[in-house]
Design a binder for these strands. Sequence first.
DNA 1: AGCTTCTAAAAAACCGATATTTTCACCCCA
DNA 2: TGGGGTGAAAATATCGGTTTTTTAGAAGCT
Lengths: 230, 230
Amino acid sequence: MTIDGQSPTAAGPRETPTSATQTAYHALRRMILIGELAPGEKLKIDTLRKRLETGASPVREALSLLTSDQLVERLDQRGFRTPEISSANFTEILRLRCSLEDMALRDSIARSDQAWEEHLVLAHHRMTREPRDNIEMFENRHKEFHMALLANCTSPILLRFCNQLYDLNIRYRYLAGHALGYQKRDITAEHTAIMEAAIERNADLASDRLTRHYQQTGSFLAGLLDEQTG
Amino acid sequence: MTIDGQSPTAAGPRETPTSATQTAYHALRRMILIGELAPGEKLKIDTLRKRLETGASPVREALSLLTSDQLVERLDQRGFRTPEISSANFTEILRLRCSLEDMALRDSIARSDQAWEEHLVLAHHRMTREPRDNIEMFENRHKEFHMALLANCTSPILLRFCNQLYDLNIRYRYLAGHALGYQKRDITAEHTAIMEAAIERNADLASDRLTRHYQQTGSFLAGLLDEQTG
DNA sequence: AGCTTCTAAAAAACCGATATTTTCACCCCA
DNA sequence: TGGGGTGAAAATATCGGTTTTTTAGAAGCT
C-alpha cells in the first residue's frame, strides 16, 4: 500500500508498520490469506475494530486498500467481504499465473546478474531449511523463493500482477492445510530443478519446470477442492 | 470499486453513483485520467475536499480505492499523489497490454457468440459516430470498443488487468491531446479491420492487427513523450 | 399460503474535531 | 558558507459520535 523504491509490488514486504492503518492492513491481510477470515465472510467494521483493537477509520481504510490486492470485495453501502472461492476461480488463477510468471521469469533470466543469482540461492536455502510443520513460515519462505525467481524482471507492473496472483492462490493452499504434504512428489527436488535451470540461464527449461510445478500442485489442489465442494 | 455481476473489471462502468465515496471516486478518477490532476501531483485531502464539496472521509476512501487501479499512490503518513509518468513506464504498459490483450482477445474470440458479436458492432458504430472534437467522449467510446473485443474472455481477472492497463495508458493519450489526430494513419480503418477479423473468428489475424494498432499508436506517443521530456 | 408493506435494529457511511506526523523556513555555529 | 538543529505551520491520520442506508422480521392483505 505504500510506495517504496525496493518493492514496487502490491503484496510484497513493506516498511515497518507504524500507523494504525498499516497495522490493520497487515493483520487483516494475514487473516484473510490463512483463512482465519473465511471465504465469502462478511467483514463488519465494528467486529473487526474490536478484534484489532483500533478505530473504525483505520479498519475501513485497510479494507479499502486490500481491494487493491483483490483480497477484499467492496459492496457499495453494504460493506466489505472476503472473496468467495471456487474451482473456476482457482483454475483461472492457476492459468494466469502460468502465463504471467512465464513472461516474468524469462525476462528475469534474460537480465540476470550475480546479485539476483545469489539472492535466489539464498531464498532457496531458507525455504528448504524452514521446517514444514510451521505452515505459515514455510509459506512465507516459499513465496520469497518464487518471487526471487522473478525478481529481475524489468516490469514492475507485471511483478505486481504475479505477486497478486500468488497471494490469491495462497488462500487455496492454506485451505488444503497439511494435506499439501501428502502429495506423492518430491517438491524440494522440483524447486531445486527450477532454480538450477534459472541459474544456468536456461529460460525454456526453467519456465517449463516452473509451469509443470504449478500445474501439478494445481491439479492436486483442484482434486481436494472438488472433494470438498461436491 | 463495487462488485456487481456484469462488470468484474476494476475500472469498468459501475452502477449509478450514490454514496459520497462513489461520487468522489468517479470524479477523482476522471480528473486523473484526463490530466486535470497532473502526473506526480500531490493530492491534498483538504484541497480535494473543498474542490469536490464533500467530507474528508469520502475523499480519503476514494483515494484508497483508486490505488486499486494504480491511479493513485499512497505514501504512508505523507498522503497521496498521482503516479509519475515516464517513457519507461509508457513502454512497459504498452508491452504488457499487447501481451495480455492478445491472450484475452484469443480467448474472447474462441468463446464468441452472437450477442458478443452484436455488442462489438454496436460499440464500433458508436465510436465512429462520435465526433472526434470531443476528446473525452471519444475516448470513452474508444475504450468501450476495445473492451468489447475482449468482453467474452472467460477470465475476469485478466479482463481486470487489461482494463487497468488501458486506463493507465489513457493518461498518456490525454497528455498528447489533439496531437493524436495528427497521425498519418487511418485509425478508423484499423479499428474496422480488427473488428472484421474478430467477427470472422480469425484470432491470429485479429490479434496481429490489434497488436500492430497498439504499437503504432505507441510509437507515435513515445515520440511525443521524448520530444516533451527532452 | 404467498406476497407486499411497514418498522425497529443493525450496520455502513459520513462529518467535525483532535492528535500526530511531516515539512520547511529560520537560525546557530563551526 | 554550508550542515544540522529547532519550532511553528501544514498536512495527515485518527477518533467518537451522528446520519443514512440496509436488513430482517412481523403484520397485514389477496
